[in-house]
């Protein structure tokens, strides 16, 4: 049986799940303030590839990423997790390239390396390179199967996968290889519990980087000069304006924790007041003063 070559497309994204540092709240976000991570869905795809390799024992995994220094670090983590090889594509003219140009560059790599199966995550955390796999598959003339929940088996040049459809429906799809399969992230925190020797090997080995000319592409075709879509301005989401919850310190620790975790959101509830008519009137007036219902 022939060796199964698996390629995994890795995209680096800005981690938008943590609060962004203050620098980025400008007109154009500054790259140095942002935290770059491996796209969680792509990491999940890598884990699927590792599982496949464990089942089939005759296969090897190459991680491919398009990007600058942040992509190099992402690839090193892939190596630490168990990928055999890593390949980075980067070229100065790709900085301002559109998705079509980037897709063509990835397609050129796939055409040259001829993997049997290409995996990637379905979607990108920061949305920026979400289109990339589809464009690359199209440019390389590969089948593209998005929205895949799991890969059932890979044999005889075919892959059987289960796709997610609307309202919880599932479909089983048989696709002829080579094909690009985009896997939906199944949740959970991506982690890398690589062993230490593997980690050291991943972070000390040389990392090849191919430019456009190595791939037989020109900046006119794939780079910024060929871009039909240009980014004029990027704006990140607005900062969180809510005040931090500083719970009453007299409460027990468990209730304080609840308040912090609830982020200051409390259930709506009525209030029963008792007392003399004067006290009741005072409380009602105080209520209207504190709640922006009517002007007093």
């Amino acid at each position: 049986m022939r060796k199964l070559n698996i390629a995994v497309l890795i995209r680096s994204v800005v981690d938008s799940r943590v609060p962004l540092p203050p620098d980025v709240y400008g007109e154009k976000p500054l790259p140095e303030g942002m935290i770059s991570i491996v796209n969680p869905a792509d990491w999940f795809a890598l884990e699927c590839a590792l599982n496949l390799r464990n089942q089939m024992n005759r296969s090897q995994i190459v991680a491919i990423a398009l990007g600058g220094e942040e992509a190099e670090e992402s690839l090193r983590w892939c190596l630490a997790a168990g990928a055999e090889r890593a390949l980075r594509i980067w070229d100065r003219s790709l900085v301002e390239a559109d998705q079509l140009g980037r897709g063509k560059a990835v397609a050129a790599v796939l055409t040259r390396s001829k993997p049997d199966l290409i995996l990637c995550g379905d979607g990108c955390l920061d949305q920026i390179n979400s289109l990339l796999p589809g464009v690359a598959a199209s440019a390389a003339g590969l089948s593209y199967v998005p929205g895949v929940a799991r890969i059932e088996k890979v044999e005889h040049g075919m892959a059987v996968v289960v796709r997610k459809l609307e309202k919880g429906k599932r479909e089983r799809v048989m696709v002829k290889l080579p094909a690009l399969i985009a896997i939906e992230e199944a949740g959970g925190v991506p982690s890398c519990d690589a062993d230490l020797p593997g980690l050291i090997a991943a972070f000390t080995q040389p990392m090849p980087c191919k430019g456009l000319s190595c791939l037989g592409l020109s900046p006119e075709r794939a780079g910024s000069r060929g871009a039909k879509v240009n980014n004029v301005m990027t704006r990140v989401s607005r900062p969180i304006t809510a005040r931090p919850v500083t719970p009453d310190h007299r409460l027990p620790a468990e209730q304080r924790l609840r308040k912090i975790l609830a982020g200051g959101v409390v259930r709506k509830q009525g209030e029963v007041i008792t007392g003399t008519p004067e006290q009741l009137a005072d409380r009602i007036i105080e209520f209207f003063r504190s709640e922006p219902v009517v002007m007093l």
Binding site: D193, A194, L196
Partner: peptide
Amino acid sequence: MARRPQGEL
């Protein structure tokens, strides 16, 4: 000792 498998350094 690093907190990783085979973490002896």
